[in-house]
């Protein structure tokens, strides 16, 4: 396996874009910043399976986002988190 671009604990931003094709990033998570909770394996890219073979495969990361960062009116604790799998091509380094 190739080395991962992002490492556990790193802050990453989920891209805020909406390609007009099947993709697996829910709108509520787009544009938000979280930390890498876990580095996962390489998987076929959903956008490239429509009349394609999903290749080249991309790495998935689990990203942990504080709920209070996702929802302005969030009713819960500062420790409440959302964790979501995001493909590498949807992530960029965040400060």
């Amino acid at each position: 396996m190739t080395e991962s671009t992002f490492v556990v604990g790193q802050r990453v931003r989920i891209a805020d874009r909406t390609p007009p094709v099947h993709h697996r990033v829910p709108s509520y998570a787009k544009g938000h910043v979280g930390i890498v909770e876990r580095v996962c394996g390489l998987h076929g890219v959903p956008e490239k399976f429509i009349r394609g073979d999903g290749k080249p495969r991309q790495r998935i990361y689990r990203v942990r986002i504080p709920q209070t960062e996702l929802w302005q009116d969030y009713d819960g604790t500062d420790g409440d988190k959302l964790e979501i799998e995001i493909f590498e091509h949807w992530l960029e380094k965040a400060e």
Binding site: D16, H23, P26, S27, Y28, K30
Partner: peptide, 13 residues
């Protein structure tokens, strides 16, 4: 949060 992409994109609604 972006606009939902299609009828399946339900999270947060």
């Amino acid at each position: 949060m972006s606009e939902p992409w299609g009828p399946h994109d339900l999270g947060g609604q």
